[in-house]
Amino acid sequence: MPFTNNPDNQNKLLAFYFAFLFTLLFNSAAQAQAKWIRPETSSDKPMWGIHNGIVFCLWPNAVETGHKGSGGPRGLIQVGYEYNGKIYLINYIAIEPIVDGKIEFSEISPSATDGKWGKLMWASDTKTNDAYNPVSISHGVISHPDSKHPQTEQLTLFVFMEQYLDKAAPYLKISIRSDRPEEICFEINNKANSAHMDRCALTATMGNYSRLRLLHLNNKVIDSRKLYSDYAGIDFIEKEAYPVTQMLKLKDGSPIALATQNESLAQLNTWPTDSAYSAKKGWRYRPDFKLTQYWRKDGASYDPSLQIRVNGRANYWAGASPDPRQYVNLPGGPAFENFELREKYYPGQKFIYGLSRKSVDEILKQQ
């Protein structure tokens, strides 16, 4: 008698089929859940991101795997990249509101709690729970933002900060999509008691770590070594900004600004043996891969004020010390330190920051 004509065998086949289907669905669900990096319990480190992609956290936690200590200055968002089970710190994002033409810096503006440099920041799953609570845990909210692609997930949470001295009160809605694991979207809003902001800059403020020297525009590449060739001081050096008309565009018209390294990976990983550099080893590039860094707008809708702003340094940052002996030169010459898009402020404006193992050409082709 054929196997399927036997009632007992039919029941066994159905049982096997449903068991197989359950296992498949369970594994798919587990895999979907496993790709996100976020705190599940109070003992988990509060950081958020996605495997083989972008990850971020807030002071006093450190985003980099194995790092001991606070992980960097207060008042900055630490952004890293997870690859092969290890997270590498790549850059910091500072929040810099401009009120009445004057800028205030999140990492050096004093906290109202202790007067020390750096605004306190904290995370929340909702925009209504905005009171500072250092022991609260934000898991982040998983949603499905694209009805045409229901398998796409998005992790979203809010980051709040102390009110600034100029009375600016911005907050951020931060999201990462599973189909764009190398990007983080920052949406800027303001509380009701905020002073009017001319702009609220989000700046990637540690380009010297990756020694970013090449800024890619639509008709040329700006080389920091040539741009700042006449400068060798210990301060920041800044020249003109680049308007949106000089920016590269994606296929949908989205403006994008890309910054890359001019050195090989072997050169980046090599650290000078001179004794002056021994105390500065934290600046040595640690990932075993290179990353293209970029800022972009989402879609072709943007304010005409949009522009690229960079500044540079010839020396690694040494805590604003006025003593030149505390500084060492960047191997290979000046690099871009701050890298950002500037745009007139409006509530809900979005800036997307990317860290990609792809080249500039590959990024432009895939969009």
Results as ranks from 00 to 15, higher is better:
240 E>W: 10
104 E>W: 10
158 F>N: 07
4 T>K: 13
123 A>R: 06
303 D>W: 08
47 M>R: 14
155 L>S: 04
302 Y>A: 14
117 W>G: 09
90 I>C: 03
80 G>V: 01
140 G>S: 11
32 A>P: 05
309 R>T: 10
353 Y>E: 08
325 R>H: 14
78 Q>G: 03
49 G>F: 03
360 V>R: 04
244 V>M: 00
274 D>T: 06
266 A>P: 05
243 P>A: 00
74 R>S: 09
314 A>G: 11
256 I>Q: 01
69 G>R: 03
327 Y>C: 11
13 L>P: 03
177 R>P: 01
257 A>F: 05
257 A>N: 03
5 N>W: 12
266 A>G: 03
120 L>M: 13
258 L>S: 02
342 R>I: 01
34 A>G: 06
333 G>K: 10
18 F>W: 14
136 S>P: 02
78 Q>N: 08
108 I>F: 09
90 I>K: 04
23 T>R: 10
103 I>K: 14
276 A>C: 06
65 T>V: 01
225 R>E: 00
185 C>W: 05
316 Y>T: 08
286 R>N: 09
169 A>K: 10
187 E>D: 02
23 T>G: 15
250 L>T: 01
208 N>V: 12
302 Y>M: 13
277 Y>N: 06
365 K>A: 14
273 T>E: 08
313 R>P: 08
214 L>W: 01
105 F>M: 11
285 Y>N: 04
170 P>G: 13
347 P>Q: 06
179 D>N: 15
227 L>H: 06
135 V>H: 15
222 I>N: 00
166 D>E: 12
217 L>E: 06
126 T>Q: 10
164 Y>P: 05
147 S>T: 12
231 Y>R: 07
297 K>A: 13
114 D>S: 15
167 K>S: 12
